Simulated scan of single mutants.
Amino acid sequence: MRIPGWISQHLAALRAVLLFTVVLGLAYPLVVTGVAQLPGLRERANGSVVEANGKPVGSSLIGQSFTDADGNPVAKYFQSRPSASGYDPDATAASNLGPESIEDTLGDPALDPNSEDGDGSKQALLTQVCARSKAVGELEGVSGARPYCTSDGVGAVLRVFYTGGLSGKVTRAVSVNQACPATPFLPVYEGVSVECAKFGEDYSKGVLVPVRGDAPQTSPVPADAVTASGSSLDPHISVEYAKLQAKRVAAARGLPVEKVDALIDEHTTGRVLGFIGEPGVNVLELNLALDRGCHASARPAPTAWRGIGEHGRH
């Protein structure tokens, strides 16, 4: 009996679905999984999980923060670089802010900035860098001053109003990143008193003028201490940033600085292929090495990393 053509077409389609389901849905994943478990590949395929005392505490490929329950840095641990996602692997992303991001969005003083919805404020990249540099400087006992930053840790930026729009005599100057009743970082600009910024006022007709200030060109606080990586998950910091933290960590643990410096050198990785990028220090592995050396628990302080279920919440 001859099978109708439309039935033959459906049977052929069904056979194709079954074949590709077996090949691509079963066989291929099993082969790839089997290859990934070969010696030399198993650790990376399984997430490069780092364990301490038989328990997972993180991944050597994903950064995490080392802070207490209130979000303050734990003195005996090296601190990671900032993260735009809070080191959440499910929310990895860059801030997408660039060099022209210098003016903050002021928050509504009638709203609670700590509420779920916040007060509507938004920091520009410049203010983020200034605030982080100030905080790191205070933590490490060095100057966190940077060019174009105020002493209170915001971007030193004015909106300047001229008689001719873009030029002419200055008629008004506003420190747009310092909300009232803050004292402006600059009392006078070209003969005009500088005002603090008020929520709701429109300063868009003024010219944005960054003010460099007298901070040195090179800060003792390195760039990776004040900026997040592109993925926001970078587990490494620069050797310069690690060395900056060595004195504080050594004092908190009662160790010679030379011993801490030696551990930094031991956990410094070289450039990729010998010439790509810069040497880096894996923060989690360095902190675990410190714990082992001090005969303390190798389990790190509270972290923001949530990559291994509840084990990532210390």
Score class of each variant (00 low, 15 high):
Val209Leu: 15
Arg292Trp: 08
Ser121Thr: 04
Lys134Glu: 10
Ala12Cys: 12
His295Leu: 13
Gly40Thr: 01
Gly213Phe: 09
Ala91Lys: 09
Ser151Tyr: 04
Ser48Ala: 09
Gln128Lys: 11
His236Gly: 00
Asp202Arg: 04
Gly34Thr: 02
Leu14Cys: 12
Ala250Lys: 00
Ile308Pro: 13
Gly86Lys: 00
Trp6Phe: 14
Leu125Asp: 11
Ala197Leu: 05
Ile62Cys: 14
Leu208Asn: 14
Gly5Lys: 11
Ser297Gly: 08
Gly206Met: 07
Ser229Phe: 06
Arg306Thr: 14
Leu38His: 09
Glu43Gly: 11
Glu43Tyr: 15
Ser59Tyr: 11
Asn53Ala: 11
Val170Ser: 08
Gln123Val: 09
Gly63Leu: 07
Ser121Trp: 05
Ala228Met: 06
Tyr203Ser: 03
Val17Leu: 12
Pro29Phe: 07
Leu125Glu: 06
Ala52Lys: 02
Tyr189Thr: 01
Ala94Phe: 12
Met1Arg: 06
Thr67Arg: 14
Lys205Trp: 14
Ile102Val: 13
Leu106Gly: 06
Glu140Pro: 09
Gly213Glu: 00
Asn282His: 01
Ala75His: 10
Gln217Ala: 15
Val207Glu: 15
Gly254Leu: 03
Ser238Gly: 11
Val249Tyr: 05
Ala225Asn: 13
Gly34His: 09
Val194Ala: 04
Thr269Cys: 04
Val74Cys: 08
Gly293Gln: 00
Ala75Ser: 10
Thr268Ile: 02
Gly141Thr: 03
Pro147Tyr: 13
Asp104Trp: 08
Val129Lys: 13
Ala45Ser: 11
Ala197Ile: 01
Gly213Asp: 00
Phe161Arg: 02
Gly200Leu: 05
Gln79Phe: 08
Glu310Ser: 15
Cys180Lys: 12
Ala36Trp: 10
Ser59Ile: 02
Val50Met: 08
Ala52Asp: 03
Thr227Met: 11
Leu288Ile: 02
Cys196His: 07
Ala145His: 10
Gly213Trp: 04
Ile3Asn: 15
Ser121Asp: 09
Phe78Ser: 00
Ser297Ala: 01
Pro29Cys: 09
Thr183Ala: 09
Arg212Ala: 09
Gly164Pro: 10
Val188Thr: 07
Ala145Cys: 04
Asn96Pro: 13
Thr150Gln: 05
Glu116Gly: 08
Tyr87Leu: 06
Leu38Gln: 08
Arg132Leu: 08
Ala156Arg: 05
Val157Met: 12
Val192His: 13
Thr227Ser: 10
Ser59Gln: 02
Ser95Val: 02
Arg146Leu: 14
Pro300Trp: 02
Pro89Trp: 13
Val142Asp: 03
Gly107Lys: 03
Gly155Cys: 04
Leu290Asn: 02
Ile308Ser: 15
Pro4Asn: 05
Ala251Arg: 02
His10Tyr: 14
Leu97Gln: 10
Leu288Ser: 00
Arg81Gln: 04
Leu139Gly: 08
Asp224Met: 06
Pro99Lys: 13
Ala223Asp: 15
Ser238Lys: 03
Gly86Glu: 03
Ala27His: 15
Asp202Ile: 03
Thr67Phe: 14
Ala289Phe: 00
Ser95Gln: 05
Glu103Lys: 15
Pro109Lys: 01
Ala250Gln: 01
Pro113Gln: 05
Glu240Ser: 12
Ser121Gln: 08
